[in-house]
């Protein structure tokens, strides 16, 4: 039972990170129908920024929660800025282009950003400081680590904030309008360019949160971490039903649990096979994902 709970919380942690990333994918996809392949790289840049900021600040004598807060904030700001710039350079000029062109541009950006970090920093794994302290009250608990608890709660909080933002603010409403019908929204005076920028900024900020948390939990990063995480998170978004925010979270969690239990009970070698196998299986049974609405084309 204890082993089961350990795997359960391990999966929940992993799934939370996938969920944070998947939200970015699903929001961008909902609004401009683009698979933002460079999203994983934004997450990686967030992790690097946090590492750099944390290392620099710890040499100035900062530590504990304040260090986490400042490094995290730096990561969020920088990732958001990268996401914003990425959209302006690689996707905005391609709004009217054939559907696959922005996808290629995204793949190009992903390669570019990986090599940018590789060249400017290093190709080696860097050890990431444990920014999340062990809680004193958690000393006797074995089934869940403090950092896991933090990751799960931060994800829950971010998701809640995002939901409130989308539901109740003006720009949130504009985002929903653009996702439903971009041209109609535009005719009604919604500033579509701005909505798209905000979408990228929010998605990138969420990715940065995920990047900082998981790096602190795992303890090492390199320039390539974004790629795998990105593919997994996109898988999670599709699993849950792309375009749907609750779907992205659910998809992330389901994916996390699948990987965790499969690794724990079956074989760790085939972790990713289970993840993708689950995706293929679900899409074949329910082509629009778990929470996705099937959209019939009007004839």
């Amino acid at each position: 039972m204890e082993y089961f709970l350990e795997l359960f919380f391990g999966g929940l942690t992993r799934g939370s990170i996938y969920a944070l990333l998947a939200l970015g994918y699903t929001m961008v996809y909902g609004i401009i129908q683009l698979i933002n392949f460079a999203h994983g790289e934004i997450y990686m840049i967030g992790a690097f920024t946090a590492l750099i900021a944390a290392s620099a600040l710890s040499m100035l004598g900062l530590d504990g929660w304040s260090l986490l807060a400042i490094a995290g904030l730096a990561a969020v700001i920088y990732s958001a800025a990268y996401g914003f710039t990425l959209e302006k350079i690689a996707y905005k000029p391609l709004r009217k282009a054939p559907r696959l062109s922005p996808l290629i541009s995204a793949i190009g950006m992903s390669i570019f950003l990986q090599n940018y970090v590789l060249l400017a920093q290093t190709s080696d794994f860097l050890s990431f400081p444990a920014l999340i302290d062990e809680f004193p009250f958690m000393e006797d608990v074995t089934i869940i680590r403090s950092s896991e608890l933090v990751i799960i709660s931060v994800t829950a909080l971010s998701t809640a904030l995002l939901t409130i933002f989308i539901k109740f603010t003006g720009i949130g409403k504009a985002m929903r309008a653009v996702a439903q019908d971009r041209i109609m929204a535009m005719l009604l005076g919604v500033k579509v360019d701005r909505v798209i920028s905000v979408t990228f900024i929010i998605g990138s900020a969420l990715a940065a949160v995920g990047g900082v948390l998981i790096s602190s939990h795992v303890g090492q990063i390199n320039f390539y971490i974004g790629f795998i995480a990105g593919i997994k998170a996109f898988t999670a978004a599709v699993l849950g039903g792309i375009g749907s925010l609750p779907g992205a979270v659910l998809g992330g969690l389901v994916l996390g649990w699948t990987e965790s239990f499969a690794t724990g009970y079956v074989s760790s070698d085939y972790e990713d096979v289970f993840a993708f196998g689950l995706l293929v299986f679900i899409l074949i049974c329910k082509p629009s994902g778990i929470l996705g609405r099937s959209s019939a084309e009007k004839v």
Partner: peptide, 28 residues
């Protein structure tokens, strides 16, 4: 046979998953 009824990007991600599965199986 099973995946071709999926539309557009869903097909893309399933084929991506399939490619990864094949590679991982070869690896393990």
């Amino acid at each position: 046979f099973p995946v071709l009824r999926l539309r557009g990007d869903y097909l893309a991600i399933v084929t991506l998953g399939f490619g990864e599965i094949i590679r991982l199986v070869l690896e393990n």
